[in-house]
Write a protein that binds this DNA or RNA. Sequence first.
DNA 1: CGTGCGCGCCCAACCGCTTGCTCAGTTCGC
DNA 2: GCGAACTGAGCAAGCGGTTGGGCGCGCACG
Lengths: 224, 224
Amino acid sequence: MTTTSANSGRARPRAAGEGGARRRGKGSPALASERREHLVRLAADLFAEKGFQATTVRNIADEAGILSGSLYHHFDSKESIVDEILTGFFDEIMAAYRAEIDAGRDPRETIAGLVRTAFASLEPHRAAITVMQNDWNYLQGMDRFGYLTKSEDEVEKMWVETIAAGQEQGLFREDLDPHLTYRMIRDTIWVAVRWFKPGGRLDSRSLGEHYIKVMFDGINTHQR
Amino acid sequence: MTTTSANSGRARPRAAGEGGARRRGKGSPALASERREHLVRLAADLFAEKGFQATTVRNIADEAGILSGSLYHHFDSKESIVDEILTGFFDEIMAAYRAEIDAGRDPRETIAGLVRTAFASLEPHRAAITVMQNDWNYLQGMDRFGYLTKSEDEVEKMWVETIAAGQEQGLFREDLDPHLTYRMIRDTIWVAVRWFKPGGRLDSRSLGEHYIKVMFDGINTHQR
DNA sequence: CGTGCGCGCCCAACCGCTTGCTCAGTTCGC
DNA sequence: GCGAACTGAGCAAGCGGTTGGGCGCGCACG
């Protein structure tokens, strides 16, 4: 009997060997390791469903078919798991946003590009987006996650400047508060994570296109 | 000395007598009582800030200047508090929605009316709206809150039918999915609860009017 | 070819703390 | 002296996190 008991049903004990992890010099705070990445993905799925605070380390361990204590062989805290998820999200989306802006097209196309970028991240980054909505206030109170506010400010700046530029060029209505408009757009996109299910009848692409149509031209018919 | 210790700073012990509580025959599960209503309002404020799960019964008790156990003289569980808040919200908004629809005006005016109704509830029902966004998944998993899904479906039906009617009459664009459009509108309104502060520089009325403009005609300038 | 051992992985038990909730008993205005 | 309001202590359950040790695989060494 290799595996005596434990493993109450649920998950296959994972074959143990698997592949890897050569070095991992003690200095760097843990490099990759496939097993580790796998655990992060499992945790992400749970965060995407329930948020960060509502997910326990025992939930994560159960999903992986191990005990909660075993998680601490890979991570030094529950926070460091979500940190990894959030950092990955911000790195990726901010790079994508910047690329969209640096393309230097007119504000209308740029905004459309930003919206498409945001919707594109809905699927791969469900966990991060859910956490940001459910646990934003909680995380903000911790020094470790101070970078969240910084990144958010930077993102807001990009959107607001683009909107303002569009107004100056006469592309967007003058009677809109750029900040307010940004928030409306942002929230409406991210909140979709609550009901958007990856395998459903509509993908995030067409969702984005639908949203762009309504946002730009409204729901009225436009013979006027 | 009446109050020995406890009451660690924070709140005035509330004068105790106050008014209170005639009947409340044992049969009915607790009728009003001003004290009780006051406690519900305090709890609602906390729910509006942090959500349901993240608020503890001790938080609520602290805010009222009493001990957590004392809450159970008024309520039989934390859930029954939020239940009261949610039920009040749904009862009110669904009645208002129905009145708007029964007025029988054309779809464009009806939709505008629904939007105004929703924005009007933003201020008095902040707690319920916050809870529905933060704890929807959690609450849905409990038999007690099964009515949430039912009510939501009913609401969705009202909106979708109105949108579809507007399309048939040529008022709204044909190339919009009514369900998707409803969700977009709904999300955009409710999500405002996250940054909307009652005493702020713009009230919920002008916010609603602003949104109606954008929703109908989009953010584009409309010389086309 | 065999063997020992380092190491990645995990278990089992536990810590200190917080959670929602209970309940016998005290307080006090009517 | 009755009853609504509240106390004070405490419960079981669950939380994030810690610890010491055991297992088995692959590789270096003889």
